[in-house]
Design a protein around this nucleic acid. Structure first.
Length: 255
DNA sequence: ATGGCTACGATCCGTAGA
């Protein structure tokens, strides 16, 4: 089965790209981020007509996450239990024997800013949430936009980005604290081409220069990582007219 | 030169993203 994640940067704007992509890539489960719409504006009918069950947790203008699945979704939980937050960034659901958590981690704006402090607090809360989920569900996948480039090889220009938001050491430590729970970065289970990224700035012709970052990830529990046969970035949607600034990431799992 | 796009919801600019 194929598990995918894609930050679409507005579900309304990207729906005309998402629908054909579902037909081509045929993910069994897809985590979406940055819906930028309340649930009333979520295109549930169009996605159900394309063969997907949907769970969404959205808000106006910002954030918003959804999980799509070819088979039914159960036991949905929005947010991080015990962590008060108006921002819609987390959604969990069960698909047969798989527990899937879709995350849109905070951007952090700039190192030292209020938003950066919120980002670090948020990651600590996420860590606690994932620890509990992992205890209850050994077959756990956490997919989404983590807004962290884990290592220098995930950054097109490590010198320029050194210590900057998305690449700073405290953010990378927060990322490693998730791995320490027993989660694997599925992309790094395999030999990968160099300079593989999942996000490119809209400005400065960054995509054409491959001036990107790898910040969209699929984490797998050890039980799932053992059955993972491939993980890759699909750059095709980033080449379209009016693209999202993120490309989808896909992991293939043995049934 | 610290901008440079894009989306959104408010107006024709500010906020946010990363």
């Amino acid at each position: 089965m194929k598990l995918a994640t894609w930050n679409v940067n507005s579900i309304k704007v990207r729906l005309p790209q998402l629908l054909p992509w579902l037909g081509e890539a045929k993910p069994d489960v897809l985590c979406l981020q940055e819906l930028k719409t309340e649930d009333a504006g979520f295109p549930r009918e169009a996605l159900e007509a394309a063969g997907y069950a949907c769970a969404a947790s959205g808000q106006k203008t910002y954030n918003g996450v959804a999980i799509l699945s070819r088979t039914p979704l159960a036991d949905m939980t929005a947010g991080i239990p015990g962590f008060e937050d108006d921002q819609k960034r987390v959604l969990a659901a069960t698909v047969s024997d798989l527990r899937v958590i879709c995350v849109y981690c905070p951007n952090g704006q700039a190192v030292g800013s209020d938003k950066y402090e919120y980002k670090l607090r948020w990651f600590e809360a996420l860590r606690g949430h994932l620890e509990k989920e992992l205890g209850a569900h050994p077959r756990l996948a956490v997919a989404g936009d983590f807004n962290v480039a884990p290592e220098d090889r995930d950054v097109h220009d490590p010198k320029a980005w050194e210590g900057q938001v998305l690449a700073s050491e405290p953010e990378r430590a927060a990322w490693r604290a998730l791995l320490a729970l027993g989660l694997k970065d599925s992309f790094r289970l395999f030999e990968q081409p160099g300079k593989t990224f999942s996000w490119w700035d809209y400005r400065m012709m960054a995509f054409r220069r491959n001036a990107g970052l790898r910040i969209d990830h699929i984490l797998l529990s050890e039980a799932l990582a053992r059955g993972c046969t491939a993980t890759y970035v699909d750059k095709a949607p980033r080449k379209l007219e009016r693209p999202s600034d993120h490309a989808p990431v896909l992991a293939e799992l043995r049934e």
